[in-house]
Write a protein that binds this DNA or RNA. Structure first.
Lengths: 138, 138
DNA sequence: CCATAATGTATGTATATACAACTTATTGTC
DNA sequence: GACAATAAGTTGTATATACATACATTATGG
């Protein structure tokens, strides 16, 4: 086990991403795209900046990540009252795509949960949440 | 909090990576490179495949990540008895660079550890390790 | 032995990630 | 109201990430 918390987190994220992407393969979405659509489905329209803040993704990263989703027709981008702001929302096609990928995502969740065990699965959700908050304060 | 374990892990990894990279800025290494050098310092020479396996990094990803380190002169690559294999080791320059970046890395570790608290810090090390193993089995 | 399968890495391609510098738009100050 | 300061996104650049495919080498079955 490496002594670096960041290295360990990144390694876990890679391993789990590989699991989820394997399950999602063929559904049309990668786990990053799935996550963004799932967030938009729950939250509704919001600005690029707030979306990035909520996901701890740099807003400049989202410019290009969202461009992919927009080209695929899964999200719509409009300009609000403040014309610097880009308001992002999911389209009907985006919702259909999300639903198409949903079973594969659930399978990935279930597979990891079963092997990890319920207590650790819960602990993982709690701990990742706390880690995000801590990293922001630090 | 998102319902997706993968999304939560990736978000935590991004947030923590941003913290560590902020601290490492100006030392010449990003956290990925620091991690690879630190691993090589501990383990010594090993093949690209084994390195990738230990870090849960696809071996084909390492081809280009390691190329950067080699160009910088921090690692050496040689061919062993099996001529398909690339054996990776750290150079003296690599060790000096690692030592130069070490204090910044320790600061990042300490900042996160202090805010997260020791019990959760320990739990994070344990849990990320278990998650990697679970994701591989799953 | 030799044909074939398996293995280790490289390359082509696509997405993800973030920082520095820039552009455009808003806000604050006088 | 003009001008400086601030804020939201975009673009240029560099690294990180992995899959499909290709290539070279080694192992294996007959």
């Amino acid at each position: 086990m490496l002594p670096c918390a960041c290295a360990n987190l990144r390694r876990a994220a890679r391993a789990v991403t590989q699991l989820y992407d394997r399950e999602l393969r063929g559904t049309g979405l990668g786990v990053t795209q799935f996550t963004l659509l799932q967030a938009l489905a729950r939250i509704g329209e919001l600005s690029q900046g707030r979306l990035g803040n909520g996901m701890s993704i740099d807003s400049t990263t989202l410019t290009r990540t969202l461009a992919t989703l927009r080209k695929a027709g899964w999200i719509a981008v409009r300009t609000g009252g403040d014309r610097r702001v880009r308001l992002i929302s999911m389209t009907a096609a985006g919702r259909r795509q999300l639903e198409r990928s949903y079973p594969a995502w659930e399978r990935a969740q279930e597979r990891l949960r079963r092997i990890l065990g319920d207590p650790r699965w819960e602990a993982l959700g709690d701990l990742t949440h706390r880690v995000v908050r801590s990293a922001r304060e630090a």
